Amino acid sequence: MEMLSLSHVAKNFGGKQVLRDVSFSVPEHTVYGFVGQNGAGKTTAMKMILGLLAVSGGEITVNGMPVRYGNTPTNRLIGYLPDVPEFYPYMTPSEYLRFCGEISGMPVKEIKSRCEELLRLVGLEKEKHRIKGFSRGMKQRLGVAQALFGRPKLLICDEPTSALDPAGRKELLDILTAAKEETTVLFSTHILSDVEHICDEMAFLHEGKIALKGSLDEVRKLKKASAVTVEMEQPEDTKALRQAFPFLRAAGKNSLLLEEAERLPELLHWIADRRYPVMRIERQEADLEDLFMEVVGK
């Protein structure tokens, strides 16, 4: 079942069209990467999914129910983590989560067990300090716990790793991967390595339109050609190879990069005729960053 669906969605602000004909669907229990440069329209799309902005055209559904601006029963199914979550700084993590449970009307026993469960999930179960002393990464982890508190069917994360250090990013990505066991995650980001790390499917947003979408494997197959690295044993053989094939690029000590992969048989035949020893021939995986630059024409 599709947990989230956008069908031909458009958004105008006055005479400026921010989104046009945006369509994609997010299956249940997946992590879906919503990828684009800063200013591409990702946050605008998320605000429309939350019913905080009206669509200018098209339709959005959550769990099969239409989203309506200003009348949002679908938000009962959604947990939301903004890029910079805010908390009451004088509270501890457990106090804050208990407060979230109380204002939502959850039974006391369930509040206690849910607090313990989520604090373990985000690695804050032993943290007794007040939130005002938390690092950015700790606040993001607490934000995930708060967003998951009501057992949402859809978790929306808006650029959650953009300001984190490598350790903090890894911690948060691992938490989101674990969270898909109980929910569906829409993960907005411009960091393509994060998409490769945790996403099952993705959509690239460029200049307000979906440039491409699909599973990670499907998107990688769209790369026009894969490069090949050839590493020779002897420096003089590397030099001779590059003289014979000037289109090869240096890629490290005794290594050359062949970007026109279809010419590999010609290259190997030339090496074999001269019996040059080869250390390594490796096909390069299609890189999402290169692919995105290829798609947007940069």
Rank of each mutant, 00 (worst) to 15 (best):
M1T: 09
M3P: 05
S7D: 13
S7K: 15
K11G: 04
R20S: 14
V22S: 07
S23R: 13
P27C: 00
E28D: 14
T30Q: 12
T30D: 02
G33Q: 00
G33N: 00
V35D: 01
G36D: 01
Q37T: 10
K42M: 02
T43G: 03
T44Y: 00
V55S: 05
I60W: 00
T61Q: 14
V62P: 11
V67M: 07
R68Y: 07
Y69Q: 08
Y90Q: 13
Y90F: 09
M91Y: 10
S94W: 09
E95R: 15
Y96N: 09
L97W: 04
F99W: 13
C100D: 03
C100M: 12
C100I: 14
S104T: 09
M106D: 04
P107T: 03
P107A: 04
V108H: 09
K109L: 06
E110H: 04
I111D: 01
S113W: 12
R114A: 00
E116N: 15
E117H: 13
L118R: 13
L119Q: 15
V122Y: 11
E125D: 15
H129M: 14
R130N: 11
I131E: 06
I131Q: 06
K132C: 14
S135N: 07
R136I: 02
M138Y: 02
L142S: 04
V144F: 03
F149Y: 14
G150W: 07
K153F: 08
L154G: 11
L154Q: 08
P160R: 09
T161A: 10
K170H: 14
I175Y: 12
L176H: 09
A178E: 11
E181L: 06
T183G: 07
T184H: 11
L186F: 14
F187K: 07
T189P: 08
T189I: 04
S193D: 08
D194N: 03
H197A: 11
E201P: 03
M202N: 05
F204D: 01
H206W: 05
H206S: 10
E207I: 00
A211Y: 05
L216P: 01
V219W: 13
R220K: 15
K224V: 04
K224I: 02
A225Y: 04
A225T: 14
S226R: 15
A227E: 10
A227S: 15
A227C: 08
V228M: 09
Q234W: 15
P235V: 08
L241W: 03
R242M: 14
R242H: 11
Q243Y: 10
F245D: 06
A251Y: 13
K253R: 07
L256W: 08
L258H: 12
A261V: 10
R263D: 07
L264V: 11
I271V: 14
Y276Q: 10
P277K: 03
E285C: 08
L291N: 06
F292L: 10
F292N: 02
K298N: 09
